[in-house]
Design a protein around this nucleic acid. Structure first.
Length: 459
RNA sequence: GGCUGAGUGGCAGAGUGGCUAUGCAGCGGCCUGCAAAGCCGUUGACGUCGGUUCAAUUCCGGCCUCAGCCUCCA
């Protein structure tokens, strides 16, 4: 029985899809004006894991993750670069795919882009105007009238009065209420724009997600996700827009993942303390980054540090070591019916996607495999199969162990040296054998002798 | 100031009203030419002050500290 924490009710509740057996899920994706950083990687990996698990449970999942390809930051960046906007966004969309593919993030089923949904956006704004949730300002913008929406603040636990008290003074505004937000921005000279009944302009940030999610998944769908920082105002505004326009409940369950932190501080663009995925990939295998993300529960903070990445590398090494030398058929094969490991794993994942606990089960399994390797190779293979099967749900352990250990090293040279060393060992020339081993160790290659065989791995 | 969330052993990080989380590191042993890996055993913890209870790290309350949102942000 899958239980998920709902940001809307601030409680864990039994997950019940609107339509039995089907899950409709929307996640706020990237604004494509720069490379993915580790914070983006976390959203991608977390919800990829959610989708993988839902599918494992047998749900038919429609996973939608949008791309924001028009907004202020994109326009500014394009101006800075003296680059065409489409060229800029295309470039970073490609870069995003490189990063997410590396991390084992499966592509969403639908990936709507704001610029491709202008008609739907205009239609929704028109409905909001018709329903008196929106108004035209003197500047020609369309704004959402926050006080018209009864439940405004229900997601973030905020009240209009309190928000107003802390409001910063905005100058030159023609809004009726400082908390009102823009649905449609009238075009300024030189800015990209689209035709609308209210003149040329472009969509505000929040409206695209309302238009795209309801268009792709229907007015009322199961799960909406994103980073914690989107809870307010972005998701709050999405609710106001969608429910205001459709008159139906928008989303049953809101999931928000925690931040990546550096030195007890949020990793963010504005603080400038971020690492891009491609930077980190230069030093760590992609799977290490994925593992690292899954070591902490998705709602907890994730502390980024070189040391923690190193811990992740070592932990993953232990799992791959257990798999080493076994014959694994692939994640689809899993002959065992009743298994205490599988049971614990599923129980952990059923409890709001508790990946740290699920990973702990993988280590229990690894220990069992290591024991069995000497006593019952057949059983060891079976458990190895199980390990691979369960890890697959998390998107882990899907490469060949030797490949993981070798990581693009000059394999032939190393194996020649190992052969040389083993000849020396046969001749009981320990000095020479140790010299070769130390030489390789200095290059980060560790040798392991077992019986007649010598294996190696890159640290 | 308002609203969230968190404080667990050397580090990372789950969890539980009484029973070993897990990984890395440490200690003792097995294995090994010596190692490495692996296996067996083992040390070590729940911010603080009260309350509830036979029993609290786990429930309740106060306090302290930290992070986040309230402005673009995953």
């Amino acid at each position: 029985m899958l239980v998920i924490y709902n940001s809307l009710t601030k409680q864990k509740t039994l997950f019940t899809p609107i339509e039995p057996g089907k899950v409709r899920l929307y996640v706020c994706g990237m604004t494509v004006y720069d490379h993915c950083h580790i914070g983006h990687a976390r959203v991608m990996v977390v919800f990829d894991t959610v989708v993988r698990y839902l599918r494992h449970l047998g749900y038919e999942v429609i996973y939608v993750r949008n791309i924001t390809d028009i907004d202020d930051k994109i326009i500014h960046r394009a101006q800075e670069n003296r680059e065409d906007i489409t060229q800029l966004t295309q470039r970073f969309i490609q870069a995003m795919y490189q990063d997410t593919d590396a991390l084992g993030v499966l592509r969403p089923d639908l990936e709507p882009r704001a610029t491709e949904f202008i008609p739907q956006i205009l239609a929704m704004i028109q409905r909001l105007l018709d329903n008196h949730y929106a108004y035209l300002t003197e500047q020609g913008d369309i704004c959402y009238a926050v006080n018209r929406f009864q439940d405004y603040g229900k997601l973030s636990g905020k009240h209009l009065e309190e928000l107003r008290a802390g409001e910063r003074v905005e100058i030159n505004t023609t809004k009726q209420d400082p908390l009102d937000f823009v649905l449609w921005k009238a075009a300024k000279p030189g800015e990209p724009n689209w035709q609308s009944p209210w003149g040329p302009g472009r969509p505000g940030w929040h409206i695209e997600c309302s238009a795209m999610s309801t268009h792709c998944l229907g007015n009322h769908f199961d799960i909406h996700g994103g980073g914690m920082d989107l809870q307010f105002p972005h998701h709050e505004n999405e609710i106001a827009q969608s429910e205001g326009a459709t008159g139906e409940p928008f989303v049953n369950l809101w999931m928000h993942n925690g931040f990546v932190r550096i030195n007890e501080e949020k990793m963010s663009k504005s603080l400038g303390n971020f690492f891009t995925v491609r930077e980190v990939l230069q030093r760590y295998a992609p799977e290490v980054i994925r593992y690292f993300i899954l070591t902490s529960h998705y709602r907890s903070p994730l502390n980024y540090s070189e040391q923690n990445l190193e811990l992740a590398r070592q932990a993953l090494t232990r799992l791959y070591t257990a798999l080493r030398g076994l014959s694994i058929l692939g994640p689809g094969f899993f002959p065992m019916a009743e298994s205490p490991y599988q049971q614990s794993f599923l129980a952990a994942m059923d409890d709001d996607f508790n990946t740290p606990e699920a990973l702990a089960v993988l280590f229990d399994l690894a220990k069992e495999i290591n024991r069995l390797k000497n006593t019952d190779p057949n059983q060891a293979n079976q458990r190895g199969q199980e390990l691979s099967h369960l890890a697959h749900i998390l998107g882990l352990l899907q490469t060949d162990p030797e490949q993981f250990f070798q990581q693009g090293q000059a394999v032939e040279e190393i194996e020649q040296l190992i052969t040389d060393r083993n000849i020396a060992r046969q001749q009981r020339n320990w000095a020479e054998a140790d010299r070769i081993r130390d030489y390789l160790k200095a290059q980060g290659i560790v040798l392991e002798d077992s019986g007649q065989q010598t294996t190696w791995r890159k640290i």
